[in-house]
Simulated assay, not measured.
Amino acid sequence: MAQFAAVSGKHPEQLTVADVIRYQPQVQQIQSKVTRYGISTHALAKAMVQNGPF
């Protein structure tokens, strides 16, 4: 939701289904850059300490 709000320039409560459809390519582009998801912020921070911020 935050990614759709960011690319649309709208507040989350202002988003419509049409916005989600319109901005889906941009959100997919953002998500394609994510190399992995952690189960929590803490898990991600631990992995960064162990492996570096790559």
Rank of each mutant, 00 (worst) to 15 (best):
G52T: 09
A2G: 14
T35S: 12
S40V: 09
G38P: 04
A5W: 07
H42G: 00
V27I: 04
Q26Y: 01
A43D: 06
S8M: 10
I30V: 06
M48P: 00
K10I: 10
R22T: 10
I21M: 03
F54K: 09
F4V: 05
A2F: 00
A6I: 02
Q31E: 15
D19V: 01
N51G: 07
A2S: 11
T35W: 05
S40H: 13
I39F: 05
N51D: 15
S40N: 12
M48C: 08
T41R: 13
P25W: 04
Q31I: 14
F54D: 05
V7T: 06
R36V: 10
R36E: 12
Q3F: 03
I30L: 09
F54Q: 11
P53Q: 07
L15H: 06
M1D: 13
Q24K: 12
Q24H: 10
I39P: 01
F54L: 06
Q50R: 09
A18D: 12
Q50T: 14
Q14N: 15
A43W: 01
H42T: 07
G52R: 05
Q14L: 11
D19P: 03
V17H: 04
A18H: 03
V34D: 03
H11W: 13
V20D: 01
Q24V: 00
T16L: 06
H42I: 02
P53W: 04
E13P: 00
V20K: 07
Q50V: 11
R36G: 11
Q24C: 05
L15M: 03
H42Q: 11
N51S: 08
G52P: 09
Q31F: 15
G9K: 02
A6F: 05
F4M: 03
P53L: 05
P12A: 14
L15D: 06
Q31T: 12
F4Y: 15
T35V: 15
Q14R: 13
N51M: 11
Q31D: 14
R22K: 15
G9V: 02
K10A: 08
M48K: 09
T16I: 08
V20N: 02
V27G: 02
P12G: 08
Q26N: 01
A18Q: 12
V17E: 04
K10D: 04
V34S: 02
L44K: 08
A18C: 01
T16A: 07
